[in-house]
């Protein structure tokens, strides 16, 4: 049973919480893909998306998810709002909150902004990512994809390559996979994969082949252009040569290993273009599962709110 007003991170969830959400997600997906739209669980309420960072895909995924379960969905367009004129996060949140929305789906560039919003709003806050802290629905959709393909998390080796230091996806995945019994290995340039992350229960290895060896899941992360400009590595060409994943690297993984990526992919940087049609790529399924997971989370939060009324 879900017992929190907000959904802002994986870190404080229990294994049971995660199982509960994943079960509901699979249920949602069944109804969704079997074209039984009329059978999808329905709820009532308002949802506002508030994206301080651009992400057409994630926002649209939440949008679809909300509409699928019967929410009235609106977006506060940050680009054209007074936020551009120096309105504070607190002001923006209070304004939306005062209008009486049930749910605010927020993405913000600062770590802890979700916790801040949750503390200051009557509405339920659902994180679509905050800074380099967490991106919880991404971890859930990744988990759903892994569970779908592997049947269980127990003992799985999951290798994640890229900018771990600045990745909220990597961290939410680490929290979730650790709780569920999988083992995570991080790889990437030493400037972007801090050794200290071993204290959070990950393995760190700076050799890509070694990292991928016997992996059940190989995940590439998007390399942000800013990182190169900040001097974390010389250029994208060198990054690709050292840490880019291609078919040859994939041979080191287990025979039935799957390839994942949170999308959008920089083809030719973190993933070789030849993998675009690779049979072991589950990237498009991740996108589908993203909608299902978000439907589950939104539904669960609305149930919580309705039960409390």
């Amino acid at each position: 049973m879900w017992n929190y007003k907000d959904f802002i991170g994986i870190k404080n969830l229990t294994k049971e919480d995660i199982k509960h959400i994943l079960d509901l997600s699979f249920e949602m997906k069944q109804q969704m893909i079997n074209d039984k739209a009329r059978e999808i669980k329905q709820t009532r309420g308002n949802m506002t998306t508030l994206f301080f960072e651009n992400s057409t895909r994630t926002k649209h995924s939440f949008y679809m998810a909300g509409q699928n379960i019967g929410l009235r969905v609106t977006d506060l367009a940050i680009g054209t709002s007074s936020v551009q004129k120096g309105e504070s996060l607190m002001d923006t949140l209070q304004t939306i909150d005062s209008m009486g929305t049930d749910i605010i789906v927020m993405r913000h560039s600062e770590s802890g902004s979700q916790e801040f919003a949750a503390r200051n709003c009557k509405a339920s806050i659902i994180s679509a990512g905050d800074g380099t802290n967490e991106h919880p629905t991404q971890a859930l959709l990744d988990a759903m994809t892994i569970l779908d393909k592997k049947g269980s998390f127990e003992g799985l080796k999951v290798t994640i390559a890229g900018d771990i230091l600045h990745s909220r996806v990597a961290k939410s995945n680490l929290y979730l996979l650790n709780k569920m019994g999988a083992k995570v290995t991080f790889t990437g340039p030493t400037t972007l994969v801090p050794k200290a992350i071993t204290q959070m229960g990950a393995k760190v290895c700076y050799d890509l082949k070694e990292s991928v060896k016997d992996a059940d899941v190989v995940m590439g992360l998007r390399i942000q252009m800013e990182r190169q400009n900040s001097g974390a590595f010389p250029d994208l060409r060198e990054y690709n040569k050292t840490y880019g994943i291609d078919g040859a690297i994939f041979d080191y993984a287990k025979k039935d290993a799957i390839l994942m990526h949170p999308a959008p992919v920089n083809w030719g940087v973190e993933l070789d273009r030849s993998l675009f049609t690779a049979p072991y790529s589950v990237i498009s399924e991740q996108v589908t599962n993203g909608v299902a997971v978000r439907m589950a989370v939104l539904y669960m939060i609305m149930e919580y709110r309705n039960n409390r009324k």
Partner: peptide, 10 residues
């Protein structure tokens, strides 16, 4: 800088 900063994403 260190594990706390990493954990909080700061």
């Amino acid at each position: 800088a260190g594990s706390k900063a990493l954990e909080l994403g700061l």
